[in-house]
Every structure is written in C-alpha cells, then in structure tokens.
Nucleic acid binder design. Structure first.
Lengths: 233, 233
DNA sequence: CTTGACACCGAACACTTGTTCGTGTACAAT
DNA sequence: ATTGTACACGAACAAGTGTTCGGTGTCAAG
C-alpha cells in the first residue's frame, strides 16, 4: 500500500457491494443495482462514483457494455485475502446425499397431486439434495413440494418454502402431516393427534395458535412432513 | 456420473465460449454475443440451446437478467481440470456436500456469541450437511445455530429450527439478517432494507406482520441468514 | 462576491438484451 | 399418412441498461 486515502463512505460501500455481488452471482451488477443498494437514486451518480473509483485504479469499466465493471488487481487486493483463507477453513466432506424430486406445489386450495410418473423420470434440475443424516433413517419414497401462498403461515411455513414429505395415508400421534380437509376443501400442514376413534386434533406448529378438532372421517392424510427448508439468500 | 450423453457440437461450442468469455472478461456473455461466436443467427436458438444445457445441469440461468448465465459445479468441472492451480485456490467448490459447524444457539435475549475457536476444531458430530446447490454458490464462512424459544415466530422460525448463516456486518437490501437491537437488547431475524442513510426497515418474514423502522446506528448486523431448516420427523 | 471543483439529482434518450411467437425442416414412431 | 419431438430461423416486443444533460448545493480559493 502506497498512501492512505479517504475513499468516501459511499464509494467504499459501492466497492463492497460489487465484490459481494460478483461473488454471489458470478457476474458484475448493473449501475442501477448498485444504486438501489447504496442507495443512490440517480444512475448518473453511480456512474460518477464509478469513474472516481476507476481513477483510483480500483476498478475498470468497459464502456457501453452492460455489467462492464471489473476489479483491477489493486481493487481485488482489498478483499482477496479474506476469501481464500475462509475457503480453506470450512472443510467440505464428501458423502452421499439423498436426491429428492420436486414434484409440484402445495397450496391451500388444492389437494396435492402427485404425477404418477415414475420418480426416476424427473428432470435432473428439479431435485433437492439433502443429507441422509437430516432425515432419520428411511430415505425412500420421499418427494418435495414448493409451498405456494401464505396460507400455511400458522404452520410456520412460508410461500416459497420447500417441504420434504413421504407419501403415507395414516399418521401417528405427533407427526406433522399434510392433510386434506374435505369440509373446507383445504390442504394444511398440522401436527396430528388421535383424540378418540372418531376425532382427531390438528395442532398448528405456531404455538400461539389453537388446535382444531375435526372428524377423523373428514380428513385425508396426504403425507408426512419430514422436513421444511427455506432459502433466504 | 450416471450416463454419458452426446451433447451436440453446437452446445459444446457454446459451453466453451461461455467459459472462455467469463475467463477473459470477468462476466458472462449475452446471448447475442454467444450467437455471434458460434455462430447462430437467432437469439431464440441460443436461448433454446441454453435451456438444453440447463436441463443437463451444466448451466444455470437467472431469468430476465442480462448476462444471467452461470456455471453449475457440474458444468465447471468440465473445464476446471485444465485450469491452473491458481484458479483452483479461489473457485474450488466441492460438488457433494457442505459441512457446516453448529456453533451454538440463537435466542431473543442474547447476542449471538461465536466461539472464536477456529472452525476446524469443531466436533465432527456437530455438523449440518447441506447441498451447495441450496446455498447459491458461496459456501464459505457459514455456520449454523439452533433456535431457542418462541421469540422468532414472526420470522416464521420456530424453536428447534436450524438457521444457517454467514458472518457479515453489513447487509444489502432484501437480505434476511440476524440483527441485535441495542435499544431492546434483543436478537431477531428480519429482512433488511436501507430506507435512508440513517434509517433501516426491518421486515418480518411473516407477511401479516408490520415492519419496524429504526436508526441504523442502533442495529448491529450479526450475520446473514442463508437458510432455515426444520426437521419434523 | 465570484469562480470552479466536487458531489449529487432526475429525466430523457438510445442502445442492449432476454423473451415470445409464428414458421419451418428433419426424423423416428404410430 | 400422421403425430410428436428435437432443432432451427427471424421478427418484434418489452424490459434492462449506460450515457447525456440541465440543474442544485457546498465549500474553499481567488
């Protein structure tokens, strides 16, 4: 390092954002994406600051090219030392993983429909990979669904979440299941309890919400929920 | 590897071009740039072949985003062996499973305390295994926490859930982060938005709940939430 | 006070770029 | 002969995206 320079907070922030963006997305951001994050309302100001950073020798720009931002070696040096040390620290261990097909969606207003196609035929890209250790033993007959809509927030499940299930028509006490409520024409996720031979209790996962009691005859178990996954990044 | 498939000459050429382009320019090409090189006269044909390559699991695409082409680990593997050891240090991602250390708990009334022990020292059995595909590429600096208590139900996170996070002190708009609210002495999980240089908006994941607005100075970001997992069986 | 640099804003413009759609060909299966 | 699938073409549309330009405010130098 030759000399210490001020480098305005905004510019530092821009630099940081670009670095993170590239790392996460494998491509540079647009100037509008930068402006949205910093935040800077005008694209021209972003452009202005990028020019300043270029003058410092931290960035390069390809004119008239979308996402034409590139780090110089000097700019890269500001971040690089961190990243490679970390890559080393987290050790990746090779094991076998369970390949689960994503077969559709689950929503309030419709029963789960499983295409009766054989599992082996599903697209390679419609798969979820899970460690067998997370699934307590039996890893067969599993499938995954994407949750659509906010109707299952009382099960602490959000739109976009992935639920991994096993197809089964009966449930034991305390298992979380996807049930079809015939009276309501609704699919929900609940903890299942036999209260009597005729009545079942469906308990929401959210502890602040009350259970519902319904006739055993009016519920149809569609499968047991093995796991819920939510990507937030 | 299960079975080897032909992979048409055009598609091979496309792959090669994308790889070289990224290497030379630090950003993915546009579909028109691809078409110009291959050559393919129509953008739709490039798009068509890209889709085919995606089905093969060699590429990923971000819809409606310029230059939204990304190599998957599998696709990258086709070229990586040729590259020098230098490249390997930066971009080597293991295909199988990411091993993430469970470093503690997260609860409302306490900041996250990361034992400053080195990551390599954690117990082998206190690990969570996740597919790297679920984590959008970057698998470094990750750690996992067990949620304790019901205090985060508004983030749709329950007691016992596992949150996978990355340590970072700043956040970009829309990221879910664990923040320490100095005024309340509370740790919560919220979606983060810069409203102004001084104010931030913290948005609960539960869409039925309202956001809170606080001074940027009074929040301390503890990490970004990459994923939430819940075992129900 | 005036000047000029620095930092910023918002709108407009023009080019870039991904997607969609109608069309066409070749080939194998029915 | 007909159907279905894989592959391809080109035009047109709608966003995405970088640049330009007139204007504002601050601040130190002249």
């Amino acid at each position: 390092m030759a000399k210490e320079k001020p480098l305005s907070e905004r510019q530092e922030r821009i630099l940081q954002f670009i670095w993170n963006y590239i790392r996460r997305n494998g491509r540079p951001p647009t100037i509008r994406e930068i402006g949205k994050d910093v935040p800077i309302s005008s694209t021209s100001v972003v452009s202005y600051n990028l020019k300043a950073l270029r003058k410092r020798g931290l960035l390069e720009r390809d004119a008239d090219v979308s996402r034409g931002i590139r780090f110089t070696d000097m700019g890269r040096a500001l971040f690089e030392d961190v990243s490679e040390a970390v890559t080393e620290a987290v050790s990746n261990v090779v094991e076998k993983l369970v390949h689960i097909p994503m077969v559709g969606t689950i929503a309030a207003g419709q029963p789960i429909d499983l295409p009766n196609t054989d599992h082996a035929l599903y697209d390679e890209d419609n798969m979820v990979d899970v460690s067998p250790a997370m699934l307590r033993g039996d890893t067969s007959q599993l499938f995954a669904l994407t949750v659509k809509g906010d109707s299952m927030i009382d099960a602490m499940v959000n739109s976009g979440d992935i639920v991994i299930m096993r197809e089964q028509k009966i449930a034991e006490n305390g298992e979380m299941v996807a049930v079809w409520l015939k009276d309501d024409d609704t699919t929900t996720l609940k903890y299942f309890y036999h209260e009597s031979p005729e009545k079942v209790r469906l308990q929401p996962a959210n502890p602040t919400m009350d259970p519902i009691f319904v006739d055993a005859a009016s519920v149809e178990i569609q499968g047991k929920v093995m796991m819920v996954m939510r990507q937030t990044a």
